[in-house]
Design a protein around this nucleic acid. Structure first.
Lengths: 210, 210
DNA sequence: GCAAATTAATGATTTATTCAAG
DNA sequence: CTTGAATAAATCATTAATTTGC
């Protein structure tokens, strides 16, 4: 359930526009690049040891403290039988993953668990399974992407007209308005204007065979 | 560096910036006699989802007619540099998204583009970017939604944005995460084996000597 | 009512990831 | 370990929607 953040496909969303134009919601945007915890989080004096990887997640600890308090204050506490990572824990795990940790050894698991325990309840098996699941789901996601991309993509595809992609080819504009450019490869464009063939996203998608 | 709509003169552009602020090019499009009218477009039937998907947006075509008229009535047309979907186009795209289209293949992009051209000017890259953006922003919206909901419910599910992560990142931990002491001490692994009943895989990983 | 100013939405680009092939 | 493929996230830039002062 907490892996919803990685599930990018499949859900169908309700339409947020009617008759074409979206109305202004007048809701202040949360400004995703700002940390809304930073105001309440004291500058935790974490030891500046160069060896403490996990100390950098202290700035998120306010949330878990809050949660802990709330957990204690609500009498009929329905404690989930399942581990749920705190933001700091999740953050640290993702960071480790990004930095290359895939299948941590027993010692690594113990180390990670011990370090992350200061952010909330956690066990070694949680760390173990987290890496298992994360690795598997990343791979799965990737595979699904490859599938959908390749299943229809590798036949002789008509290449879209790219005259407006920044390339300076006024010559083609007239004669190739209707018939699409026959698979122009990058080398022919490279000298003309570097911005046109700067490996743009759309070009790569539409013309993957180079 | 941002692309200017149709000014593809490339190498001898006069400076468009003033005081560092780039000004809008507002260069009238050449309009190379491209008939983007719907009359000449053959009614290629869409088979994206098994039916003529795109024929249902004709009832919105009045708007595009209006646009076309305006285009013809004001000779020094200053055409916007960026594509703006007509209501029918937007509706069709949203419907496709709702029906599950997320990352259309090149062929799908072409097909969609061809079909939507009868409602107004459109290119493959527009379709491509539209799905990219729409998918990303729906996900973003959902994530933000989940975030705020989880804050209320004190469930720390949110995926935190990574900007602050990068800002507070320090560079000394890579070694530590990768080189840990190779000696295994099973006595420290007691925690994992506590609940070994449902976690055999984990136990085997953590304590292979059994 | 109306433009100028402001703000939100969104099209288009750039950057940072991921897996896995070599 | 390096790199190719292909994004998805982040960001930039522009357009529309709205507000505001007259």
């Amino acid at each position: 359930m907490w892996m919803m953040g990685y599930n990018d496909g499949g859900e169908f969303n309700l339409p947020d526009s009617f008759n074409g134009r979206k109305l202004r919601p007048l809701i202040p945007r949360p400004l995703p690049s700002t940390n809304n915890n930073s105001a309440t989080t004291p500058p935790c004096l974490s030891r500046l040891h160069g060896t403490d990887f996990f100390s950098q997640y202290h700035h998120l600890a306010a949330v878990s403290e809050q949660n802990k308090m709330r957990e204690f204050n609500t009498p009929p506490v329905v404690v989930s039988s399942r581990w749920n990572p705190t933001p700091e824990q999740l953050r640290a795990l993702e960071d480790l993953y990004r930095r290359g940790t895939r299948t941590p050894s027993a010692e690594q698991i113990q180390h990670i668990t011990a370090q992350l325990r200061r952010y909330g309840k956690i066990e070694g098996k949680n760390v173990f399974y987290w890496f298992q699941n994360h690795k598997a789901r990343e791979r799965q996601k990737r595979r699904r992407q490859m599938e959908s991309a390749s299943e229809e993509n590798h036949r002789d595809i008509e290449i879209l007209n790219r005259k407006e992609l920044g390339a300076s080819r006024t010559v083609f504009e007239v004669e190739e308005t209707k018939n699409w450019a026959p698979h122009t490869n990058c080398s022919t464009l490279a000298e003309g204007s570097k911005s046109s063939c700067g490996y743009r996203m759309y070009d790569r998608w539409m013309d993957p065979i180079r």
